[in-house]
Amino acid sequence: MLTLSQVIDTRGSEMATGVLGLIGMVAVLVALVVGFAVPRQTVAAPEGAGPAVDAAERHVRRLRLVGLVLGGVVAVWLWGVDALGRGSMLAAVGFGLAFLVVMCVGELTNPVSRSARSDADLRRRRVGDYLPRRLSVLVAVTVVVLAALLIVGLVAGTADDLGRPGRALAWTTPTGGGSAGPWPGSFYAWPMLGALLVELALAGAALRIIAHRAQVVPSQAASEVDSALRSAAARGVVAATGVATAFPLGGLGVVMAITASNAVRGGAPGWLAVVVWVASAAVLLAVVTFSQSAASLLRSAAGRVVRDDTDERAEDLGAGAA
């Protein structure tokens, strides 16, 4: 005969998986629409430096595509690693880490052109100069909320009926008590917190590399293009971090909301009702961050930052001569 906790555990897992799948599909659809529908701002390639800039952009775009594919492979592999949900929780972080590693390699191996005369800006480049403001704020809030939910899960989690620590939520009442699961206690929170720290450290390192790498073409004419390439790369890093954190936040939010809601119905203390609302709000935040980040990622891999005006210039000159 099934205990109450087992019933809640089974139904909770099924519901969580269903809701998470639905949210994921909606978010991916929104990302695809936004990613390809919104026109992108481009900068003109400077005269004479077109081939060098083109080579640099092609190199970075190619590596971003490699990053997306490699990240996808890592995510699919991680998804099947653990039947109790740790693999699927870490899949997006695995995607983000693989993408960021490839991005770092791409930026470090950027082809740079040489000429007899080089010039450089005397302004010190900072990471903040290239961050996309709105997306960065959104991702930062997502990271904070994810960390906060993990800490709540860690503090409130207890062992489940099979004795696995940090997989259930238990409560006591004057008449007895009960437990519900799954719950993101230490069983899920420690691996996720560790992965989150690695993700943030790698994102920070990638942003530093982007800001401090040598300029692609050592001339004043190419400085605008250089800044645009750095901004696009920084957007890719923030977007990868957004995908890596929003996806597990969505999953944790759904699981916490359902389990806490079941617990409240089973007579658990009232403060868990607050957790239900906070976790539900976190799911909404996760959907917004995921769709925005995925759209940015797709655009950074598919769209061009630099446009070649050579043909337009040639047409203008031709018209002028006529």
Binding site: R114, S118, A120, L122, R124, H212, A214, Q215
Partner: peptide
């Protein structure tokens, strides 16, 4: 006023 780091300026000037 801050000057660029040695590494940044050297990379940009190819020296």
């Amino acid at each position: 006023d801050r000057l660029p780091t040695v590494r940044q300026l050297a990379g940009d000037l190819r020296v």
